[in-house]
Amino acid sequence: MIIAEQKPLVDIKAMLDGYQDVLVVGCGTCVTVCLAGGEKEVGILASALRMTTKLDGNGKDFDEVTVQRQCEWEYIEPLTDRLENYDAILSLGCGIGVQTLAERFPDKRVLPGLNTTFLGLPTEQGIWEERCQACGNCILDQTGGICPIARCSKQLLNGPCGGSQNGECEINPEVPCAWQLIWERMSALGLLDQLMELQPPKDWSTSRDGGPRRIIRDDLRLPEDYRD
């Protein structure tokens, strides 16, 4: 899932300077699960903002709503009727949610309340770790299900490097060496011989190097006459 964390309250307050009536919009999907921007977090943040702006001598109004998914038109459409009452929208969605709101409601100021951080999972309660960089050309079949693009600090395809010490990465002992993990997994699977093959330089054109990405599925598109 997409992992995000809330911006510091002082930064959010600064963004809201000049806006009096604000709608705080949460998202019921990834950021709810990573406890950054769901209904509960929307309630806590809106209350905190009501209190802190009152203490500053300029109490602002914050209303709350959480949609199931901020990143799809159909889920944000119901917001249309109520937006005229607000000067700004404070989104607790990920960067995609913020941009979906801004694209759908171009006459509204849409502000991000979260820092979208990475694609990952909770490895234990209160800890989230990165697992995927969405490079567009998955090689997990070659690496025992452990991604060297997301988890090796140098994104090596033929690791480990000389900085791997006792299974730890040289950038930080708390970062496990991805290639040590790959080696151990492939060894346990009896597939070490596959790691002996040298991997050629990766084609990064499927990643960000090729510019913003787009997938078109003609089998799923509506006939031209039915498109918006």
């Binding site: 002082v10 806590i44 905190a48 209190m51 203490l55």
Partner: peptide, 9 residues
């Protein structure tokens, strides 16, 4: 920490 950030101590 949240109460500190709000200004409530």
């Amino acid at each position: 920490s949240l109460l500190d950030q709000i200004g409530l101590n």
